[in-house]
């Protein structure tokens, strides 16, 4: 399929979906609307709301806050996950000791941590960063751990026969292998960073896209909720495109740029 055809079809899906939505919320069938506008708003109101947000510029601050929280959560979570994953993989005893706790922490739904973080870190950005961190950390941790563990034995033997000492093995073999696994989970971890930020804002904050949605919901402003959701979706898509670009650059050595979604 050519790029143009694909793009046309993709746009067509959106057009059809919006048309159905518009029809169901504005055109009466046998005297009544299929979807009550109070609960489903309609495309024009939502579009108008989004336009107003950007026209007045009020949305930029929220976008900026959410972006800052997501970025911080991603960077700190990735760094922490990579270092601990590396450490555990190279020290099997440490990994064995911590294994049940890692599993416990990972199994815990992160949403329940949000109130605790709000108590500890306040309603500012850091409680959201903390929530995003707990999500990103584990994705990166497991990938790096796996990456170091699963270095091909042949490549390892080759490196040793070429004369690498332990430090050189780290730099030239373990680290690139771990990084490649980490980058293959880039989409997942970036997505989780955004989820952490938005959920955190939704549960208690004074700014951000999650806050915007939560505020609209509080006054039954359905157009506002939908507008918030659309802006958030667009935000995530832009970030995903950026991630894909970074990925293409970093993983040039890969036969196929895999998108392992853990």
């Amino acid at each position: 399929m050519s790029r143009i055809t694909l793009l046309t079809l993709q746009v067509l899906v959106a057009v059809v979906a919006i048309a159905i939505w518009h029809f169901a919320t504005t055109v009466p069938v046998f005297g009544r609307l299929l979807l009550p506008p109070f609960f489903f708003s309609n495309p024009f109101d939502v579009a108008e709301r989004i336009y107003k947000w950007f026209y007045t510029g009020s949305v930029w601050r929220h976008l900026w806050i959410t972006l800052a929280e997501s970025t911080l959560a991603f960077v700190i979570g990735s760094l922490g996950g990579a270092l601990v994953g590396f450490w555990f993989a190279r020290r099997p005893i440490v990994a064995a000791v911590f294994d049940p706790y890692v599993k416990m922490m990972n199994a815990l739904p992160r949403v329940v941590l949000a109130p605790i973080f709000a108590l500890w870190l306040g309603l500012g950005i850091w409680s959201k960063v903390a929530l995003g961190f707990t999500l990103v950390f584990f994705v990166v941790f497991f990938n790096v751990y796996q990456g170091v563990k699963e270095v091909s034995p042949t490549i390892l033997a080759n490196a040793r026969m070429l004369g690498m000492n332990e430090r050189q093995l780290m730099r030239n073999v373990y680290w690139p292998s771990a990084l490649s696994w980490m980058f293959s989970s880039l989409h997942t971890s970036v997505g989780f960073a955004v989820v952490g930020a938005v959920v955190g804002e939704y549960l208690g904050s004074a700014a951000g896209l999650g806050y915007l949605i939560q505020q609209a919901e509080g006054v039954f402003d359905v157009a506002g909720v939908f507008a918030g959701m659309f802006v958030l979706s667009a935000f995530v898509i832009v970030i995903d495109v950026l991630v894909s670009m970074v990925e293409r650059r970093l993983l040039v050595w890969r036969p196929t740029v895999g998108e392992a979604r853990a």
């Binding site: 042949t154 490549i155 080759n158 690139p176 890969r254």
Partner: peptide
């Protein structure tokens, strides 16, 4: 088997 470093 292949023993080259795939990232180099």
């Amino acid at each position: 088997s292949d023993a080259l470093f795939p990232w180099k």
